[in-house]
Every structure is written in structure tokens, then in C-alpha cells.
Amino acid sequence: MGGLIELFSDYTLRNVALGSALLGVVSGVLGCFAVLRRQGLLGDALAHAALPGICLAYLLTASKTPVVLLLGAAVAGWLATLLILQIVKHTRISEDGALGIVLSTFFAFGIVLLTFITKRSDAHQSGLDKFLFGQAATLVEEHVITMAVLGGAALGMVALLYKEFKLLAFDAPFAASLGFDTNVLSVLLTSLIVIAIVIGLQTVGVVLMAAMLIGPAVAARQWTDRLGVMIIIAALFGAGAGVAGALISVSDEGIPTGPMIILSLTVIVLCSLFFAPARGLVWDALRRTRQRAALAK
């Protein structure tokens, strides 16, 4: 109880907790669609591609305002998506090949820019290196408000187009035959995933952000056979892992937040894989043992 009161009275802790909860909810919800469309890897490519965007935005504007940096990240993520689509369309390179190429090229370019910025300015003055593995302690109210606005818009779109996104994820050609523009829907959904990634960059960082999309969705899928329920559980799991990881990392100076959040998430994913009622591996094994015993009699 004491910890909870402290959480909401302490300014830093409140921002950290709110920010990581927001990030968990948004990436949990959008991750469900990414995972069901088998686009988990796309999230990884988009997150890595965001790094040069952040660096260029900083170099061009010399501003550290979150809106500016996140806009840079979003534009770079978008460009990466377009590039991947064009490569798949015009060459014989497969989608995973294209993802790999774009991911590493953008990330390499981002690291070069980051090194350049760090050398040029006084070491950590820019503070951009926190975007690699995330640093929740640096979240201030301004960041949380930016995240809330972006995340709220993304969740609003999902609520509005839930029917269309579900159909797109399940059977895109059928959606197209009904007259829904699947290209528009697909680009829209990918843009929302870019928003989810952008929201998580400061807290989780570009390297591990994809796990924040995939983990909650995979864990939630184990507990239910309904998309609506899966989305709600994924949001809760995402928020839980986000808050737990962020608070652990803030409790000790210098622990990067991203890895802590992902480790918390891993605990949730593993528990779900083993113990979820219908799909859990433990119950599966038990059922099989019982069946074998019954057959032996």
C-alpha cells in the first residue's frame, strides 16, 4: 500500500509508471493485429529504422523536444515500410529478406549518426543514446502527455475500425472482394504500429521494441479464443510488464529500462505458454499422461 501511495505522489515515479503503462496498452493492442497478420518482424524493422530518424531530426532541428524526435522516428519508420514493400514488389527478394536488409541498413546508418552526434556534442548532452535501450527515468510530464495523445489516437482508430482490421487480419482477399480497400487498411494498420513503436522508443528503445508488440499478443492468445478478449488481455499484460520493468529499472541508477520490461514480459509469456488453461503445455502434458494411463488399463 505504501508503495502505491508513493507511486502516485512521487513525480518521477508517476510519470514513469503512467508512461510505461500507456506504452504497454498501445503496443499490446496493436501487437495483436501485427502477430495475427504474421507481421511481428515488420515491427522489429520499423523500430530499428526509427533510430536514424531520431538522429536526423535532432541534427536538423537541434531540438530535443519529444514531438520533433518522435516525428523523425515515425517518418523513418514509414520510409522503411515503403522501401520494404517496394523491394518485395519489384525484386525477387522475399519479404523476410527485405525486412532484414532494411532493418540492418537503417540501424547501421542510425548508429553512425548517433556516434557522430555523441562525438560532436558533449558526450551525453544530446541524450539520444537512451533511445537504444530505453531510459524510463528520463520520462517527464511532457513526454507522457505526448504519448497519451498519440496512443489515444491510435486506440481510437482501432476501436473505430475494429471490424475492418479483424477482417483484414483473418482474410484480406475476402475483405477486398467486399469492397474494403485492403491497401488503405494495411497502410493504416502499419501506421498505427509505427505510432505504438514511437511511443515506446524512449522507454524500451529501438533494439527491443518489437518484443513489446509480439510478447503481450502471444501471451494473451494462450488465454482466449476471442479476438476482443485477446486484445484486452494483451493490453493488460503490456501495461503490467511495462510498469514492472520501468519501476525495477528506476529503483537503481543506470539499469536500462528496455531490457527490464522485456524480462518482465518474458515471465508473463512463459507463464502463459505453460499454464494457460486450454493451450498450456503443462495441462497438455498432464492430459496426455492421463490418457496414456487410461489406455494402459
Binding site: L36, K166, F170, L178, F180, D225, L227
Partner: peptide, 16 residues
């Protein structure tokens, strides 16, 4: 393996 029910899939026919 998509998380949905038979009835829900059939309802998709009304989406158009």
C-alpha cells in the same frame, strides 16, 4: 487458428 468463432466468421459475410 485465428481467435474467432464460427458465427463470427459467418457474420463477416454481412460486412460488405
Amino acid at each position: 487458428d485465428f481467435p474467432t468463432t464460427a458465427l463470427d466468421v459467418v457474420m463477416m459475410g454481412t460486412y460488405g
